[in-house]
Design a protein around this nucleic acid. Sequence first.
DNA 1: TGCCATGGTCCCACTCACTGGAACATCGGC
DNA 2: GCCGATGTTCCAGTGAGTGGGACCATGGCA
Lengths: 246, 246
Amino acid sequence: MRSALRDEPVSVLDRILAILDTVRESHGTTTITQLALATGIPKSTVSRLVGDLIRQRYLTRAEDGVVIGLRLFELGARASTPRRLSIAALPVLAELFNATGEHLNVAVQEGRDMLSVISVRGRLRPVPSRAGVRVPSATTALGKAVLAFTSDESILASVMAGLDPQRRHMLERELATVRTESVAVDRCETFPGVVGVASPVLSPERLPVAAISVAGPVTNMDANRMMPLVRHAALALTHRLALQVA
Amino acid sequence: MRSALRDEPVSVLDRILAILDTVRESHGTTTITQLALATGIPKSTVSRLVGDLIRQRYLTRAEDGVVIGLRLFELGARASTPRRLSIAALPVLAELFNATGEHLNVAVQEGRDMLSVISVRGRLRPVPSRAGVRVPSATTALGKAVLAFTSDESILASVMAGLDPQRRHMLERELATVRTESVAVDRCETFPGVVGVASPVLSPERLPVAAISVAGPVTNMDANRMMPLVRHAALALTHRLALQVA
DNA sequence: TGCCATGGTCCCACTCACTGGAACATCGGC
DNA sequence: GCCGATGTTCCAGTGAGTGGGACCATGGCA
């Protein structure tokens, strides 16, 4: 990992990860040429690296290009945080789903975004978020629930930096409310017609480890009814996680 | 990717993938030293590579070692085959679950193993297979359903090579039955007390793309009742996949 | 308190694995 | 048959990666 100057990767590892991420970002399939353009790596080098990755099943050839392969699926399925959370959250989500019937999510902070780790389909169509997708921190209920309790000032600052002063002020006031209420709301800020209600899951040190949310159509989901349910679910998950470690 | 002779990886890519796979295989956490021993890569090199992978969030440091990180989870969630299958299989699985209430799996062939791609929990405890885990081809219903229709003679041969002559003969006869019945059964061969019933999902060219299975306790699940249900589900999935491409 | 064992990181001269430009295939489309 | 676009292969040159060893934690033990 020599020069990470500029954004041109030079180490093999950087390049491999750049290729994998580019394949991921290109929803659907990508070609070698597109990868070379997007990453700035010469075409012959991309061809060789992709060839190796395909041989190892980390990538696969589809009809019209390259896609993520089964080995990465296998690796991803063993990821530590999602597994731990899943085990602890499953009964909690089952209860919450029985009470609401709505779309549920458990997400963790990943850089300045929230990354959905578990997703339960409710009646909402199309499904706004699935496990493994990123949603913005500044507008989603999940994001606000975590931001309100985050200790990493730099992340909070960089999220704030992306907002104009007015919205920033509003978000700051909102986060203060979240800190007392333990519930955050997203009224069609991220997805039109979709309301989200989320509550943070904290570690014993009161640092945010995740958030749990309910999302439904603005037309006929009562956010106020959801708040105590989500808060209760988040507390239950917090409790179960504390037990799990021991 | 120079010499893949012996099993000592020399290319950076080989080494990175060897490290990732070793972390995956070590259920739980691994240390740098353990990784160096398992992969045959010098400790200083492992330290550097793991450091880079952690910086990129492909791995994460846990209390007692290194575990799979969130970026790999994100990549895995975008894997092509599991996504396509999930979209097509969800309604089919819902129907099958309503009819049975048992543990369901959709799996694909991955080398000589079957890799579970979707898993629905039934009443069975402990859950024998989850999404992202490998199960043997020779003994599971899923494996037999696919092996019976596989065109890759080398895989069939290498699975057979792992069996003693008597078992090999039995499996061959079993596969012949599967070819006519489109249903394979695993009577406690893989997991004690667990019966599995599976049916293959074929491409328009009649090549196996996946298999779908029901698993339940040998004590009170009626395999014969499951057979038509599983067969019907597999046909429905086959049909939906054929439509999806178009 | 000192000592050893264990696990992890860092340094830096050497060298071989990786690079990438260019030539070569391959596939339509007109 | 020509052209453009995409993917693969070749190979000499070289700098990215290597790894032995020094160094820095811990922590158990006497």
